[in-house]
């Protein structure tokens, strides 16, 4: 114990000095040079195909059942974008799309295009939420999953403010931060995520990036993919097929 304490003081001291300077300033160098440097291995990626999503909401409902997500909060949700010829954009997501969508009252002749965009935690490579957690209650797991330790979380909501995607919420039962875990428990048990499993059209794919025969690695090769809000520098690991410029 005594040794641990000394170790801690030493570590904390050095990291206080070092982390601010080294990690934040100098690690930007290699990233700019193109090598995706990160101390962590991001072994997994999630691919969302907005071109095949039918907006049935099965994924959001399955997520709620799988993870006991309290009503009114969403670990995943589906947005419907309707873009008019006039250029105006209508977006809706009733109940997070969990109960499906009903037809809109617009004149079909006025609609330029319309599509669904499922959203979930992006499990970023450089997650802003983990950066701002003051107590080390949210972290990147060895497999690259961004998780919350509900036994350490103090419930300050700083991570919710920091997440550019609003993927986090305050769990009204545990009073701690809560979010999509990419069904970490299921992955560790050799299954796939609940939302991927129930999707009837395969609009959601999850798998290892390094598994060259896997569907994710195949799509990574075959398709041009986009991420949400790349300007935040968080390097999301949820990749989108057919993402429109109107989607934030």
């Amino acid at each position: 114990m005594k040794h641990d304490r000394r170790e801690f003081i030493k570590k904390a001291g050095w990291t206080f000095i070092g982390s601010g300077l080294y990690i934040n300033l100098f690690s930007a160098g290699p990233a700019l040079a193109g090598s995706r440097s990160s101390a962590l291995k991001n072994l997994y990626a999630f691919i969302v195909n907005t071109e095949t999503c039918i907006g049935c909401g099965k994924c959001a409902a399955a997520c709620r059942a799988e993870n006991s997500v309290p009503d009114g909060n969403y670990r995943t949700w589906i947005e419907r974008y309707t873009i008019m010829h006039s250029g105006s954009v209508e977006v809706d997501s009733p109940h997070g799309g969990e109960k499906g969508f009903t037809p809109l009252s617009f004149n079909p002749a006025d609609i330029r295009k319309s599509f669904f965009v499922p959203k979930l935690c992006n499990h970023c490579k450089k997650p802003n939420c983990v950066q701002v957690c003051p107590v080390g209650a949210t972290y990147v797991s060895p497999e690259g999953f961004v998780l919350v330790d509900e036994k350490r979380c103090v419930g300050c909501s700083y991570c919710m403010q920091a997440c550019p995607y609003s993927a986090r919420f305050m769990n009204p039962v545990t009073h701690t931060a809560d979010k999509c875990t990419w069904c970490y428990h299921r992955i560790r048990q050799g299954k796939t995520t609940a939302c991927v499993q129930v999707c009837p059209v395969g609009a959601r794919l999850f798998g290892r990036v390094d598994d060259t025969d896997g569907p994710v690695a195949q799509l990574l090769k075959a398709k041009r993919l986009q991420v949400l809000k790349p300007e935040t520098g968080n390097e999301p690991m949820v990749l989108y097929v057919g993402l429109d410029k109107e989607v934030h």
Partner: peptide, 11 residues
């Protein structure tokens, strides 16, 4: 610290 201090300082 489980590897990286920035992103993996946790229980």
């Amino acid at each position: 610290v489980q590897g990286s201090y920035s992103y993996a300082f946790y229980r």
